[in-house]
Write a protein that binds this DNA or RNA. Structure first.
Length: 264
DNA sequence: TGTGATGTTGAATG
DNA sequence: GCATTCAACATCAC
């Protein structure tokens, strides 16, 4: 479930399974819509005999660097997932393609909803520029975060979700940040004081760090977080008030009407 | 059976 | 240029 911490965990898996091994073959399955700037067949051809030498995560994107200087870019959409498995094992149900390594190990890319995107990039910096992909949410400085907010007129949630402001925040973490800082997600940026903006930045950093420390395993997220109460009939872990559900920035949003102040 | 789900993109609107 | 809303992508779970 891929927001920044989830993709970070996928990167660890990818590095462990795929780095520095010769790619014997790419096994293609039903790949419609998955490959964005190359056909599956051409992708498989390019991969054969190559090795991944490193990987780089920026927001929800994972760039896997090849020994020919190019990159394979993974974006997981809502349901993209890597699965490592051995020769003879059954492949995941919605596997779109798999890398096969000489020892028989596979790294499958599974995606039921086909919302994932895979690109083959000769120049990853060019891609980042074209997409206007913002700095990673964990890398961005407080000053740059505040600077991005300058002049914006929309909601705080919309700001956090826009990947050109900063990269990596998704719907669930954005709700968590707003809740922890006690700001209504539909609050308008111009109405937020400097102090609140800084709290949002530091709250976000702390949440992402803790999520990564827990390997994005939701069962281990603190019960004091909004996270595991964020559902129908859920109550605020701070004051017990029933949570509200609304649409903000086009996404389903949970918040506590009692302790999250609406500004603007 | 209908509805909504962690995301992105493009089109249309204001 | 900005911000918002909608539809599309395809499948699963409740």
């Amino acid at each position: 479930m891929p927001e920044l911490p989830e993709v970070n965990t996928k990167k660890l898996n990818f590095d462990r399974v795929a780095l520095h091994k010769k790619i014997e073959k790419v096994e293609l399955r039903e790949t419609n819509h998955i490959f964005r700037n190359i056909t599956g067949e051409a992708f498989a051809k390019k991969m054969k005999g190559r090795k991944f030498t490193s990987s780089y995560r920026r927001g929800k994107y994972l760039f896997a660097h090849l020994d020919n200087g190019h990159d394979v870019l993974f974006h997981f959409g809502m349901t993209g997932e890597f699965y490592a498995y051995e020769e003879g094992d059954q492949h995941p149900k919605h596997e779109r393609f798999a890398f096969r390594f000489p020892d028989g190990q596979r790294l499958g890319f599974d995606c039921p909803r086909k919302l994932a995107h895979i690109y083959y990039l000769e120049n990853k910096d060019e891609f980042i520029q074209e997409k206007k992909l913002g700095e990673d949410a964990l890398e961005i400085s407080e000053a740059a975060f505040l600077q991005k907010m300058e002049g914006k007129t929309g909601t705080i949630k919309g700001f956090l979700l826009n990947q050109s402001n900063l990269a990596g925040m998704g719907n669930l973490y954005a709700d968590e940040v707003c809740w922890q800082v006690r700001i209504h997600p539909a609050s308008l940026i111009p109405a937020l004081e400097d102090k609140t903006r800084r709290e949002l930045y530091h709250g976000m950093q702390a949440i992402l760090r803790q999520a990564i420390a827990n390997k994005a395993d939701y069962a281990h997220y603190p019960d004091e977080w909004l996270w595991n109460h964020r559902n129908k009939g859920g109550t605020c872990p701070r004051d017990g008030h029933e949570l509200e559900r609304d649409k903000v920035a086009g996404r389903s949003t949970y918040y506590c009407p009692q302790c999250q102040e609406l500004r603007g």
